[in-house]
């Protein structure tokens, strides 16, 4: 009985398997892990495929805004760092596609959905990188928000997802720091460089706060995800944690966070922040952001231009296998 431990493709989900459900509930209640071949509710599987593949797509689309500056990085050291970082994002996409594939959806299928525009990815990557300082702002703010989101996912109930997140979090520890360093260097530089840094922070601050998703009362998937131990903290909790971390860091940098309503609330012990533009968020999510079309076209072009290469390698493998069989 050849069974891949990581790429099981169940044809039907038996949702009324009482033993399976009891075992699943028991594992979730004990905060243990669900593994690929365990019985799981169809909705749990579906929810995970959606979340993990969206996460993977975000890594892959997320390569583009930064890849935009690899060729122009202003020093060779920064060029090397940026290349390594964008490469990591490809790697993280791969880890996540692997994790999603253990739920029975092949990567090519997820990828096809992405290039066909049928899949979602994080809205943040639909904003343009207009200057070098954006590399700093993305590292500090976007990766900072991503890390806040991802650290709790290292304890997600689905084993392969949690394991992928552990690896990703370890590797990403450098991403935020390098971004912070870029901004710090700029803030200690010429007036033009300081202006560059502030401009980038102005543009990336609010979108990075929206990365945690809509406010809790409007978040459709959150409740169920928390019950299943996939999500551990609510969107607003994570957003608050992020803002609380940002304020002293902004001070260390010497940049101003573009929120006139930002103030320390003695009563809660947290930094209160102003209203976010959720209309803007929905617009970008709905495909009407500054770069949605461009990002998808870039991904689709790479996918289509590479088809002949993938086919060549597959054909070569078949020919070699046939030749080996003939010889045997």
């Amino acid at each position: 009985m050849a069974q891949s431990p990581t790429a099981q493709v169940p044809t039907t989900e038996i949702d009324d398997d009482p033993d399976g459900r009891a075992r699943f509930d028991e594992l979730i209640a004990a905060d243990s892990r669900i593994e690929p071949r365990d019985w799981m509710p169809a909705a749990y599987r579906k929810n995970l495929v959606r979340q993990i593949s969206q996460h993977a797509h975000s890594e892959i689309i997320g390569m583009q805004p930064e890849a935009n500056w690899i060729s122009r990085a202003p020093s060779l050291k920064r060029k090397a760092i940026l290349m390594a970082k964008v490469q990591d994002e490809a790697g993280h996409g791969l880890y996540l596609y692997s994790a999603a594939q253990t739920l029975g959806t092949p990567r090519d299928e997820m990828f096809q959905a992405l290039v066909d525009g049928r899949a979602r990815y994080s809205s943040i990557f639909n904003y343009p990188t207009l200057g070098w300082a954006d590399m700093g702002a993305i590292g500090w703010l976007v990766d900072g928000a991503a890390i806040c989101n991802q650290v709790p996912l290292c304890r997600a109930s689905y084993g392969p997802y949690a394991r992928a997140m552990v690896r990703i979090c370890k590797e990403e520890s450098f991403h935020q720091r390098q971004g912070f360093e870029i901004l710090l260097e700029l803030m200690h530089g010429t007036p033009a460089q300081r202006a560059m840094a502030q401009d980038a922070v102005d543009r990336w601050y609010a979108p990075s706060l929206m990365m945690f998703g809509p406010p809790d009362e409007e978040s459709v998937n959150s409740q169920q995800s928390m019950a299943w131990n996939i999500k551990r903290f609510s969107n607003d909790d994570l957003r608050q944690r992020f803002v609380d971390m940002l304020v002293p860091q902004a001070e260390a940098l010497g940049v101003t966070l573009p929120d006139p309503d930002l103030r320390f609330d003695e009563a809660t012990g947290h930094w209160a922040y102003g209203e976010l533009d959720w209309h803007e968020f929905q617009e970008v999510l709905g495909g009407r952001g500054p770069c949605n079309t461009q990002r998808l076209a870039h991904r689709r072009a790479a996918f289509e231009d590479g088809a002949w290469v993938r086919e060549a390698a597959a054909a070569y493998a078949r020919k070699q296998a046939d030749a080996a069989e003939q010889a045997a």
């Binding site: 009985m1 050849a2 069974q3 891949s4 990581t6 790429a7 099981q8 493709v9 169940p10 044809t11 594939q101 029975g104 092949p106 990567r107 090519d108 299928e109 993938r310 086919e311 597959a314």
Partner: peptide, 12 residues
Amino acid sequence: MTTPGAADAREI
């Protein structure tokens, strides 16, 4: 028995 992903016709 289910089909393993490796032999999946949906992947090149």
